[in-house]
């Protein structure tokens, strides 16, 4: 029972991170119908920028909270600029191109970002500066750290903020209109170019927050870390029904919990035949399973076949 609770907590934490990253994928997809393959790399850049900025400030003797906050802000700023640049360079010129063309430019940008990161930060694993509190709590036999609590709280707040933005502001209304039909939206006076750029910028900001959380959770970072994270988050977005905000959040949390439970129990379930290093396959097996029965994801709308 303690193990179950412990795995649920771990899953919730990991899932909150997936959810934040998944939102970046799903926003872009909802508006443009495009997989932004470079999003995982944006998250990675966010983590690495925080390492540099917060690390430097800590060295200068600034208090931990200030250094951490500055690191987060720097990451968000850099990632927002990056998201905007990605859209301008790799996606906007190809808006009317065949469907697979932007996928290839996205892959190209992903390779470019990884190698830029390698040139700037090197090939080695970097230690994430200690900007998060170290306290540890016990609850019904399961233990969790302050970092874990912070991750869940911050992602919940960020997601709430996003929902307010999408459902309560003019920009949000414009985004929803564009996702339904860009042409009609532009006839109603929506500046579609700006809305699409905004989706990239907001998604990247969420990615930066997620990047900081990943860094403070695992305490290490690497220029290739964005890849698997992006893949999982994209899986989460599809699991929830891609293009659907609530779906991405639920999909992320669900995926985190499934992975944690899977890793915890696979040994017992298979009589020791498969071990916890099979953790990564759960995401994909669950995905295939769900899509077989609900082809548009858990919360995705049934899209009828269009002639």
């Amino acid at each position: 029972m303690e193990i179950l609770l412990q795995q649920l907590i771990n899953g919730l934490v990991q899932g909150s991170i997936y959810a934040l990253v998944a939102l970046g994928y799903t926003m872009v997809y909802g508006i443009m119908g495009l997989i932004n393959f470079a999003h995982g790399e944006v998250v990675m850049i966010g983590t690495l920028v925080t390492i540099s900025v917060a690390g430097l400030l800590l060295k200068l003797g600034l208090p931990v909270a200030l250094a951490g906050g500055a690191g987060l802000l720097a990451a968000v700023a850099v990632c927002m600029a990056l998201g905007w640049g990605l859209e301008r360079i790799a996606y906007r010129p190809l808006r009317n191109a065949p469907r697979l063309t932007p996928l290839i430019t996205a892959i190209g940008m992903s390779i470019v970002l990884q190698n830029v990161a390698m040139l700037v930060w090197g090939r080695n694993y970097l230690t994430f500066p200690a900007i998060a509190p170290k306290a540890q709590f016990e609850f019904a036999g399961a233990s969790f750290t302050a970092v874990q609590v912070m991750i869940v709280l911050v992602s919940a707040l960020t997601m709430a903020g996003l929902l307010v933005l999408i459902y309560r502001t003019r920009l949000g209304m414009a985004m929803r209109a564009t996702s339904q039909n860009p042409q009609v939206a532009s006839l109603m006076g929506v500046n579609v170019n700006r809305v699409i750029a905004a989706a990239f910028v907001i998604g990247s900001a969420l990615g930066a927050v997620a990047g900081v959380m990943v860094g403070s959770y695992y305490e290490i970072a690497h220029y290739q870390m964005g890849f698997m994270l992006g893949l999982k988050a994209f899986t989460a977005a599809v699991l929830g029904g891609i293009g659907n905000l609530a779906g991405a959040m639920a999909g992320g949390v669900l995926l985190g919990i499934i992975e944690a439970l899977g890793a915890g129990y696979i040994g017992d379930l298979t009589g020791g035949f498969l071990g916890s290093h099979y953790q990564d396959i759960f995401a994909f097996i669950v995905l295939i399973g769900v899509l077989m029965f609900r082809p548009s994801g858990l919360f995705g709308e049934k899209t009828g076949d269009r002639a």
Binding site: T105, I107, G108, M109, I111, V112, N115, L119
Partner: peptide, 16 residues
């Protein structure tokens, strides 16, 4: 890394 960088850029430019 420079070679992969150029490679990535080439992908982007050709598709553009």
């Amino acid at each position: 890394s420079l070679r992969m960088l150029i490679f990535g850029l080439a992908l982007v430019l050709v598709m553009r």
